[in-house]
């Protein structure tokens, strides 16, 4: 199933009513407060956040008042293009040509339950199909049975797993995995870290330590630090992006669980403040359900259906 279909499926039930009405009214032409409010509500309910929504509505209003008399005005189309414009230069990781180093090191970070382990297996699978070999470092040594879980995902994703015991130093696991990947000449190292809330300073510092340890063998590592963000997350997502970027130098985002009704709109304020691109989206529990992020489809799914 295509990304759009899958994504739309979830959204269909809640979105149809408002938007179709707006499209109908606007053939003839004048923006009124009620319509603006409906659009505003739709954006707010997508978790885009009050500030960003107000800016978007203001821009929409400017677009309306700035147009020539008699000129057609489709607010939905304008709004969508305003949204898409904010998502340029995403999906940089789609092609493994980017991997100029062996192994290319991807550090997966995020809060508890966002889907890091699942993503590590799916990433290995994604690149495996493009002929790249992967190693997964089981650096979540905290969670009960965290290692067993990543073991299963590594197997499914056809990746080699490097692990130690529960409670082991996650930086040591990352280092071991890095060293062995270097000596075996493997293409990709995916470091699956323990979930942590960004407000916990000590745990955040541990991520810095993992990064530093990886730099021992390769000063350019980690090459990607991906924040795994649950699509159901609200405005706390911005705080997550800030916290993890400060601690581990985030380079991009993976939005998971987009197969429900959550829109994941918090990526807009994150993009605006921190510039982080969205790389992949998670659309289900299967191996194939991690797909490159497509801004236009994403925006369509938020505003249409």
């Amino acid at each position: 199933m295509s990304l759009l279909l899958r994504f739309k499926e979830g959204l269909a039930k809640t979105r149809a009513r408002t938007i179709s009405r707006i499209a109908g009214i606007f053939g003839r032409g004048h923006i009124d407060d009620q319509i603006l409010e409906e659009l505003e509500d739709a954006l707010l309910e997508a978790d885009i956040g009050v500030d960003t929504v107000e800016e978007l509505i203001e821009k929409l209003r400017e677009n309306d008042s700035g147009r020539k008399r008699g000129e057609d005005f489709d607010p939905l189309k304008i709004l969508k293009s305003l949204l898409v414009d904010q998502l340029t230069d995403c999906s940089l990781l789609v092609h493994p040509e980017r991997f100029t180093q062996k192994p290319w090191v991807i550090l997966l970070v995020g809060v508890n339950g966002s889907g890091k382990t699942t993503t590590s297996g799916k990433l290995a699978h994604y690149y495996g199909r493009q002929g790249k070999t992967s190693v997964i470092a089981a650096a979540d040594t905290f969670r009960a049975a965290g290692i067993e879980q990543v073991e299963i995902w590594a197997k499914m994703g056809n990746a080699r797993l490097v692990k130690q015991k529960t409670g082991a130093d996650p930086a040591a696991v990352a280092f071991d995995a890095h060293q062995s990947a270097l000596s075996r000449g493997e293409d990709l190292l995916i470091v699956d870290t323990a979930g942590r809330l960004q407000a916990k300073r000590n745990l955040m510092e541990e991520l810095g330590k993992i990064s530093r340890v990886l730099q021992k063998k390769d000063p350019t590592a980690p090459h990607e630090v991906l924040l795994v963000l649950d699509a159901t997350t609200g405005q706390n997502g911005l705080s997550q992006a800030r916290g993890f970027t400060a601690a581990a130098g985030g380079t991009g985002i993976v939005v998971t669980k987009l197969d429900g009704t959550a829109r994941g709109g918090v990526i807009f304020p994150i993009r605006k403040e921190l510039g982080l691109p969205v790389e992949f989206v998670g659309l289900g529990e299967g191996l194939e359900d991690l797909q490159p992020f497509e801004p236009k489809l994403f925006v369509d799914a938020i505003m249409e259906a």
Partner: peptide, 12 residues
């Protein structure tokens, strides 16, 4: 329910 949930909390 995850305490960090946004608008989707009502839907789910």
């Amino acid at each position: 329910v995850d305490g960090m949930t946004g608008q989707d909390a009502v839907r789910s």
